[in-house]
């Protein structure tokens, strides 16, 4: 291979990856239009886009339905999918482990415990209607801090963080089971339903909060992409190449935990995206985090919005919780990619 082909090979790969991300993004916009047509009131895709481009406040049934009911749910699906995908990609990157996700590190089981505490005992950190949200958010951060604290005793390495995370996960799962054992059946039902994960509780306020969180953290994640790439060669090599390994690991953990907490406190636990969206993206785009991170955000959004759209229609008028649908939709696709790829993607 001559000099020009090393350079042009890189340029070609870069263009391909940008094109794929652009294509996935276009698909997401199309899916948004299709998702907004789903429901008992029939609206065409063209009408949906006209209504969205026409802005909020037009005095028509279509505008009310699209803006007030369907868009908050759809946007929450997009933002939650992007956030959980990013959180998973970050955790897999900083821990160099294909099984890492917000769930394997106990963060999500802590959120479930926080929500259970609010539902069953009415106890927690916030007042009134925000009790479940406040509890889920805070317990998520407490779990992240506990993982960090435990891991730090032996030094912040992927192994210590995963061991600490697994311990925390089992602890909070046991605590949640204990609360369910104490609770009456109505409360237990509510906890179980919360743990399925749902976009049904989305409002413009909750969408705004998640949008701010994703908007603030996504650029920081992108800035760390180069360090994450180098970290994949091991701590020692990364240090020697100038990467502040511990800061990246602690910052990445904090960022991923915040994103996860910010989403699942509103939606309940949606488990599958954080693990699998990064893998699907890695198989398509490769391991360079400069492309992997934005790609994962789009793929996470696509999978979550697609799952929710199918969940809303497949047994209509009954709506299946999105947490269940993500696995039904994502697992076959993931297995197909996994079996059909010749190359080692991890």
């Amino acid at each position: 291979m001559s000099e020009t082909t090393i350079r042009s090979g890189y340029a070609k790969r870069t263009h391909t990856r940008i094109l794929i991300i652009g294509g996935l993004f276009a698909l997401l916009i199309l899916l948004t239009g299709v998702a907004a047509t789903l429901g008992s009131y029939s609206i065409s895709v063209i009408e949906v886009f006209e209504t969205i481009l026409g802005g909020r406040g037009a005095d028509s049934d279509i505008s009310t339905i699209v803006w007030n009911y369907r868009l908050p749910r759809i946007l929450m699906g997009i933002l939650a999918g992007a956030a959980l995908g990013l959180a998973g990609a970050m955790m897999q990157g900083i821990l160099r482990n294909p099984l890492a996700s917000p769930f394997t590190l106990g963060i999500a089981s802590a959120a479930s415990f926080g929500a259970s505490l609010a539902i069953i005992l009415g106890a927690g950190f916030a007042a009134g209607g925000s009790l479940i949200i406040g509890n889920a958010f805070l317990f998520t951060l407490i779990a992240a801090a506990a993982v960090y604290g435990l891991a730090q005793i032996r030094g912040i390495t992927p192994e210590t963080m995963i061991m600490a995370g697994i311990a925390i996960m089992y602890l909070f799962s046991a605590l949640t089971s204990f609360l369910q054992y104490l609770g009456d059946s109505e409360d237990v039902n509510a906890v179980v339903f919360w743990m399925f994960g749902s976009l049904g509780r989305s409002t413009w306020e909750t969408v705004s909060v998640v949008a701010i969180l994703v908007g603030a953290l996504f650029p920081l994640f992108l800035l760390s992409a180069r360090s994450l790439n180098t970290l994949s060669a091991g701590d020692e090599a990364a240090k020697s190449l100038g990467v502040p390994v511990e800061q990246i690991r602690i910052g990445g953990m904090a960022g991923a935990s915040l994103l996860t907490a910010g989403v699942i406190c509103f939606t309940g636990t949606i488990g599958f995206i954080g693990l699998v969206a990064p893998h699907i993206t890695r198989m398509i785009l490769g391991g360079d985090h400069r492309f992997l991170l934005p790609g994962t955000a789009v793929v996470g959004a696509l999978v979550l919005l697609g799952a929710d759209s199918i969940g809303r229609t497949i047994m209509a008028p009954q709506i299946l919780p999105v947490g269940i649908m993500t696995a039904f939709l994502g697992v076959p696709f993931f297995i197909f990619l996994f079996l059909s790829r010749r190359r080692n993607y991890w």
């Binding site: 890189y10 790439n229 060669a233 091991g234 090599a237 190449l241 890695r282 490769g286 080692n344 991890w346």
Partner: peptide, 30 residues
């Protein structure tokens, strides 16, 4: 230190989803 000192460790570390170009590119990190 990274712009002054280069280090070639003993090989053996797996590097996830990286081409040879990607690995050599890591040398440009600093």
């Amino acid at each position: 230190i990274a712009t002054t000192i280069g280090y070639v460790p003993q090989n053996g570390t797996k590097i996830a989803a990286a081409t040879v170009f990607d690995v050599v590119m890591m040398g440009r990190t600093p």
